[in-house]
Structure formats: C-alpha cells, structure tokens
Design a protein around this nucleic acid. Structure first.
Length: 511
RNA sequence: GCGCCCAUGGCUCAACUGGUAGAGCAGCUGACUCUUAAUCAGCGGGUUGUAGGUUCGAGUCCUACUGGGCGCACCA
C-alpha cells in the first residue's frame, strides 16, 4: 500500500480533530490545486534579504529590483490591492500587491493566509506612510501552511519603540513547538545565534593557539570525570551495558598521555538527575586540557577567553544579567575558598578539624548530614554563605581534597588541591585544576571514592583501571578546564532558564 | 521526590460570594487600488486539561490523574 497517491491523503485522516481554521486551510489547498497551482513547488531564486533591502535603500536611487522569500506574517487587504509582511531569516519587509500590476494572480493571493511561504519579485519603494516596501511584480506560493499561527502584532510608535501585542507566552507551547516560538517571537532566534557565536569564538580562540579539537566516546563502558548518576543503555551485539558519558575528562587526559599538548571538546554530557532552571538531562560542556601548565596559568587563559567571548558576542565587556550588570574586564578577583568564607562568615576555617567545622556548621544553622566530611561541610558553608554574594566574575581557589579526586594536591597547602572555580552571578561558571598525574595518588583517590560508593553514595566516582594504566605510562603536568556552555550562554544572553538556551529542552511526553 | 500556583475558542485574556461562557486578535461574508495593532458592516467558532464527586445547578467547590510554572531537595 506504499504506492498510494498522496493526493488521496489530503483530506483523509484526522479530520475529526481539526478545527474550522484548519479545515478552511485544507479547502484552500484543494482550491489551489484545482487552479493548477502547485502549493509545494521545488525552488525559488531568492536574491535578497529583507533587512539588507531596508538598510541599503536610498530614496534618490533608481528603482531596485529584488526577489525575497519568506513567510506571510500579516495581511491587510483593501479590495483590489493588499499589503502583507513577509518574514525571512533576517527580518521582515512589507510587500504591496495590486491587481493592476499582478493581474490574475491577485485572485490566487486571496487564497493565501498568514503562515504561507511565498516568493516575491518586485522593486523597492517607500510608501506614503514611509515604510520601505516591495512593490510586487510577481509572486509565487512556495508552501501552503495548514495550521493557524499564533498572531503576534506589533506597533512602532513615533519614538521608534516597538510595542508587542499578545506575545506567544505559553511556555509549554514555546518549548514543545519551538518552531512556532521561533516564527512568532522576536528575539528567540537571537539567543540561539549568540549561542553558536559563543561556541565559534571559543573554537577560534583555541584554534589560533594550536589546541586540537577532538571527539571522544559518548557511549562509555565506564563513566567518570564527574559526580553524577549516569544514563545506562545496552549494546545488543556485545550484550553489555554502556553508559552515556557524564564527562569526557578521562578520555581527554588519555590523549594528553598519548602526546597531544592541548586538546578540547564540546562535549554533550548526560546526567540522570533532577531538572530545573539550570539543569537539563543533556547539556554541553567544554573541556580543555593543556600539557605543562598549571591552574594558575589556566586562570589567565580563562579570563582572556571568557572576556573575549563576552566582547565578541555582545560588543562589550559588560552585560546585564537580571538586575545586575556584570563586567568581564580582566583581571578578575582571585580569592581562596577559605579567605572567601572568612570574608562572608567571619570564620577562619583553614586549620580546623572535622569537629571544629561541625561546631561552626551549627553556629551557622546548617544541617549536618550523616557521612559529611570536613571538605563537604566546608563546601556547604561556601555555597550557603559565599556563592550567593559573588556577582562579578571571581576565581575561588584551593578546594578541600575530598571534593576533588582528579585534582592534584596543592604544592604548599595540606589537605587542599590546586583547583579553581569561576563564580559569576552567584553561579559556578567553570571548574579547573592542575590535573592529578601521580598514578599512585590517583589510585588512592579512586579507592577513597569506592569506599563512598560502598557506603551508598550513588554519585561517587568509579575506579577506572584503564585510566590508571594510562597515567602509569606517564602524563605530563597538565592544566584542565570545564565550562558549562549552556550556563555561559544564559549569562551572555540574559536568560534565567536553561530551557531558553536549548532549542529543544527535555519535556515530559505530551500525552 | 516534596510544597505552592496554573490549565477557558488557533493566540492573548475576562466571567463578583457556585446560576448555565464573553472580549480583542486570527477566521468567514461584504465594502475599500499606499495600508500598517488598517478601517467599516455583518457572521461563525468552546462537552472550560482528563476522570469522578458535592449540588436543583459547577469554568467556579472537593478528590484523583495529566501537563506546565515557581520554590525546595537532588544537583561535583
């Protein structure tokens, strides 16, 4: 039955689910076919973009012929002449069609709707009311739309301010049907274009320094490089379970062992955890590893890179995020974790015992959960009392060793590792350390993690024997970095939900 | 996972303490060959997320479910 003529499908299925608006459009589709107009032709030679036409128009110049293609976003019919706005990938332009000019096809235009995609050929002119428009000589239907689009109207007032009326605001519809959101909501595209620009700028920044972009496995026989519960899948032919990566860290460092000086990857990572404004089950992490460098060097690099990206994307080192203005101009403040805690709690916890910290936790009214180590309590105090206060980009350095099984012991501070995070707008933006390359210490740290795992910590890391084998061959001193691309995009585009920087955020099934 | 809030025509929203659903835009018919949130005249469109319950009567109250939002937890 696969040879059925598509013609026979047109009004067949799902008629009962259709409302009158959709039925009406199918009737128009039939009418177009009856008139021998192909509602879905194969190509159109589009030579101009709406925005270029508008920005390049000069009243004195001779008539310019143009050809644009896009979606009809509004129609104003006045008997034998009509105006409509056509939206292409760059913007919108008004089109003027009159019967004297386009003849019989004016009747075809009567069968068109908001949402239909057309191609228009004509010349550019300015209307009496002052809007640069296209006087159509000819138009062609390029795709008939069968569903009514949400109608968003806008008005530009005398001061040139745009007023949007009834924007499509239903978040569920916007996320589930992002295509509709992109069509009708101005500005949504901009966020995603910026997202790509951010990644391109980072790529350029690294490439000019000779760092190699690489790809490593997403399906891993063993997961590692972060604290998180993984997604599990199954390979039928091998009959083994595989994990979707939670990080690519251990693979990139294997490549450093293999002799690359610097490798990076934009890594789609997957973590089987709760979802909220800053967490999507799949997200994008940039990881970079550079041989013969340490975390101090990495701080300078991060400062340069992020400020370059901010400037490239927004044309300024400063950007508005919520109610704050964030200034990415280097140098950023650098403060150790313990100095930061002292600054915001008045407590010096650097040379304390586990018992001392417990007393301080109580004084600060924080709950002590069973099995909390010295390091995890310090971390808790930090996230409660320090992090919320850090708005401008700030390097927090030198973390407790328990929280960082892949980071190198601090060269001079007992119980700490050489690690930093950058906090911006009260959230972690990146995480970096001098990488642990002592294979014996790494084995010891993995074993500590395994003990936690045995105690029921589902997020403790697992011992990776092959990774240890790689380290045993010798890894040079290395600096490593991870940056959440989604969160960086949120910052630079002033979006407060990760769903607004992902085209298709994870949603529960519709029905 | 827990708590709070939300769900009404294609879209944006209304409907006082429960009285049997209304507007704007979009759509349709007609008028209009420089309009622009076009205008003018007329018309149609809803088993109010789903399933139960209370009531003479439920969009409105109750219960469960589904989906969404926010917060908390989890989140290295």
């Amino acid at each position: 039955m696969s040879e059925q003529n598509p013609e026979q499908h047109t009004i067949s299925t799902h008629v009962e689910e259709m409302n009158e608006l959709m039925k009406r459009r199918r009737e128009e589709l039939e009418e177009l076919k009856r008139q021998n107009i192909n509602p879905y032709p194969y190509e159109f030679s589009q030579t101009n973009f709406s925005q270029d036409i508008i920005s390049q128009y000069k009243d004195e110049s001779p008539q310019q012929s143009v050809s644009v293609a896009g979606r009809i976003m509004s129609i104003r019919r006045m008997g034998k002449a009509s105006f409509c706005h056509v939206q292409d990938s760059h913007g919108k332009i008004q089109v003027y069609l009159k019967k004297d000019e386009i003849g019989d096809s004016y009747e075809t235009f009567r069968l068109l709707d908001i949402g239909d995609i057309i191609g228009v050929e004509g010349y550019v002119f300015r209307t009496k009311m002052g809007e640069i428009s296209i006087h159509a000589k000819r138009f062609e239907l390029l795709s008939k739309s069968l569903r009514p689009l949400p109608i968003v109207k806008e008005k530009v007032d005398e001061q040139g301010n745009k007023h949007i009326f009834d924007p499509l605001s239903d978040k569920e519809l916007r996320y589930r049907q992002r295509y509709v959101d992109l069509i009708v909501n101005q500005g949504v595209k901009e966020v995603f274009i910026k997202r790509t620009k951010i990644m391109n700028t980072i790529r350029k920044f690294f490439d000019t320094r000779g760092y190699l972009e690489v790809e490593t496995p997403i399906l891993q026989p063993m997961y590692g490089g972060a604290f998180a519960r993984p997604f599990i899948t199954h390979h039928n032919a091998l009959d083994i379970d595989l994990y979707l990566r939670i990080a690519d860290e251990l693979y990139l460092k294997r490549l450093i062992v293999g002799g690359f000086d610097a490798v990076y990857e934009f890594s789609k990572d997957f973590r089987n955890e709760g979802m909220d404004r800053s967490h999507n089950p799949e997200f994008t992490m940039l990881e970079l590893y550079v041989a013969f460098k340490d975390y101090r060097w990495m701080m300078d690099l991060v400062e340069q890179m992020v400020s370059a990206v901010a400037h490239d994307v927004n044309g300024s080192m400063k950007c508005k995020v919520g109610g704050n203005e964030i200034d990415f101009t280097p140098p950023w403040k650098r403060v150790t974790m313990f100095d930061a805690i002292k600054e915001f709690t008045g407590k010096n916890l650097r040379s304390t015992t586990e018992e001392d910290v417990k007393i301080n936790m109580k004084e600060l009214h924080l709950e002590i959960e069973p099995g909390m180590s010295w390091g995890s309590m310090i971390d808790e105090i930090f996230s409660e009392f320090v992090e919320p206060n850090l708005i401008q980009p700030t390097f927090i350095t030198d973390y407790p060793i328990e929280m960082s099984p892949l980071a190198k012991r601090h060269r001079s501070e007992q119980g700490l590792v050489e690690r930093f995070e950058v906090i911006v707008n009260a959230h972690e933006l990146c995480n970096a350390f001098s990488e642990l390359n002592d294979p014996l210490d790494q084995r010891f740290r993995f074993e500590e993690q395994m003990k936690l795992k045995d105690k029921g910590d589902e997020e403790a890391q697992v011992l990776d024997e092959d990774y240890l084998r790689a380290l045993e061959y010798g890894m040079p001193p290395t600096a490593g970095l991870g940056i959440g691309i989604d969160r960086l995009t949120m910052l630079l585009t002033n979006q407060d939900s990760i769903r607004d920087v992902l085209f298709f955020p994870q949603m529960k099934p519709e029905h």
